[in-house]
């Protein structure tokens, strides 16, 4: 039932936890179930034949915790893969570039209690968000070639503007400060 290196790991002896990956997965599912149970605790469960808004989520929470429990038990009995190492650079630059796109495309306004709405970033549009996203994303790769990256991000942004704004007419801001 396990994939990959499960069988090859068969000879070595392990401690209490036979499959660290499954252990982690099971605990995660249990935690997710608990969190959902807590998040839906304010919802009515309905009465009798009339199921309320809380019934389905709560039922699912219990099922999740049960399944999570089975996965944990499995992790204690069946030898399985170890936890893989997480890379740091990939997630930071890839997801970071996406967040930069979200923050710059139409600007960011924060609603801070007590102070009110504060403009964090002005709307910059695709013409700025595009190259920024592409350059930051490129940092996630092993190889780096700055000149190539710069030319590529300019060309790709131009292509996207032509495709999405000019040809497909999607209402995406390109250069809002210039009224486009």
């Amino acid at each position: 039932m396990q994939d990959g290196n499960a069988t090859s790991a068969g000879e070595e002896t392990r401690g209490l936890v036979k499959s660290p990956q499954d252990m982690f997965a099971g605990l995660f599912i249990i935690a997710f179930g608990l969190a959902c149970l807590w998040a839906s605790s304010n919802l009515s469960g309905g009465r009798g034949a009339n199921l309320g808004p809380g019934s389905f989520p709560r039922g699912l929470s219990f099922l999740l915790m049960g399944i999570g429990g089975i996965i944990v038990l499995q992790a204690l009995t069946v030898i399985g893969p170890r936890l893989e190492a997480w890379s740091i650079r990939g997630p930071i630059f890839v997801l970071g570039s996406v967040l930069i796109f979200a923050a710059t495309i139409r600007g960011t306004t924060l609603n801070i209690p007590g102070i009110g709405r504060t403009d964090l970033l002005p709307p910059l549009g695709l013409i700025v968000a595009g190259p920024l996203t592409l350059i930051v994303a490129s940092l996630a790769a092993d190889e780096r070639n700055w000149i190539q990256t710069l030319i590529f991000s300019a060309a790709m942004t131009a292509f996207c503007i032509l495709l999405f704004k000019v040809a497909l007419r999607l209402p995406i801001p390109v250069a809002p400060w210039a009224g486009w």
């Binding site: 890839v94 570039s97 796109f101 979200a102 695709l126 994303a137 790769a141 790709m156």
Partner: peptide, 18 residues
């Protein structure tokens, strides 16, 4: 791939935004 994946990301961003 180092040119491919930023382009995919960009398309996805524009797509989701739209």
């Amino acid at each position: 791939y180092r040119m491919l994946f930023p382009s995919i990301l960009m398309f996805c961003c524009i797509g989701i935004y739209s």
